[in-house]
């Protein structure tokens, strides 16, 4: 009842572990099998290994957290050699999340990952565009489209472009990447945020700022998924603060064909499993899961009342 097809890939359920929050799928195996999930988006991968930002990288906030991990990862070659073989043995959709400094680097990553075991490419366009003074690719429709085009030309895999919420108009970016050939969108990435230790007058994160995630961002994510999915014809994978099955239903009603769960896992490692179980129950009472995608009915907005 929960199974669905997303970008031609069969998902046994629409719940995917979000990039950067589930490693390469090994950490929680003793709690419940990785194969319980519909899919996993692996830790963001770059061309060369990255050591990430200095600690502290984590700050807590009401109903959420900030992170400034800085894309620490062993590089794409090590991912292919050491992590992908393990994921290949699992009956689960594998989403390779990639980050580059330029469209060419994104394309190079996509070429390397155009291999067996990778089901979908997810482009993390929240990362800074070094050539354009560090502004993120995803903050500008032109650069967002350039990255999408470069990857589409380099790979036969379905391409899902992950949008940053740190923009004024999410629909503008959504339309631009759709026109550039994206097969799907995923959103939202983290919201740029800051916490200050009032005793030391210093930011808690060594990087000063970081990305906000967790239930604190859920309503923002719902609004953005609603707007983006309304602006394009390609499917949308929704995320941002999902912690319960009800959250997942709400996100799907806003327009998400499937969802990713991230920070909620840190509070309750069983969260993805509970969400899947809850969705199953929801379907027993309400029918097939695909029927709720985009099912939100807007209120009439009369000026007179």
């Amino acid at each position: 009842m929960l199974s669905t097809t997303f970008l031609g890939v069969k998902l046994k359920n629409p719940v995917i572990a979000a990039s950067g929050t589930y490693g390469y799928g090994r950490e929680y195996e003793s709690l419940f099998p990785l194969e319980t999930l519909g899919g996993i988006s692996v830790k963001g991968t770059t061309l060369m290994p990255r050591s990430g930002n200095k600690p502290p990288r984590i700050a807590e906030t009401a109903s959420g957290m900030l992170n400034s991990v800085g894309l620490q990862n062993p590089g794409v070659d090590a991912f292919i050699a050491n992590e992908l073989p393990y994921l290949k043995t699992k009956d689960i959709a594998v989403i390779a999340n990639i980050s580059g400094n330029s469209p060419e680097e994104f394309a190079e990553l996509a070429r390397k990952l155009d291999i067996d075991g990778v089901d979908i490419l997810e482009l993390n366009i929240s990362c800074p565009n070094i050539r354009e003074g560090g502004k993120s690719f995803g903050a500008d429709p032109v650069t967002a489209a350039a990255v999408t085009r470069a990857v589409k030309a380099a790979s036969k895999k379905p391409v899902m472009v992950k949008l940053t919420p740190n923009v004024t108009s999410i629909s503008e970016i959504a339309k631009a990447v759709e026109a550039a050939g994206a097969d799907a969108l995923s959103l939202i990435n983290t919201l740029t945020a800051m916490r200050i230790d009032i005793r030391t007058k210093r930011p808690i994160l060594a990087n000063n700022t970081g990305g906000l995630s967790g239930p604190a961002i859920f309503p923002v994510a719902v609004r953005m998924v609603y707007e983006a999915s309304g602006a394009v014809k390609i499917p949308v994978c929704g995320m941002g603060g999902i912690a319960t099955a009800e959250d997942a239903v709400e996100m799907m009603m806003a327009g998400a064909a499937c969802v990713q769960v991230g920070a909620a896992i840190f509070r309750d490692a069983y969260a993805p499993k509970k969400i899947i179980d809850g969705l199953e129950k929801y379907c027993l009472d309400n029918g097939n899961i695909s029927e709720i995608v985009g099912a939100v009915k807007l209120n009439e907005r009369d000026n007179e009342w």
Binding site: T21, P55, R57, I58, N67, V69, F266
Partner: peptide
């Protein structure tokens, strides 16, 4: 400072 505590998030390097 940690988030997951289990090796999944790279928050504690």
């Amino acid at each position: 400072r940690m988030a997951c505590g289990a090796g999944a998030c790279l928050g504690c390097a």
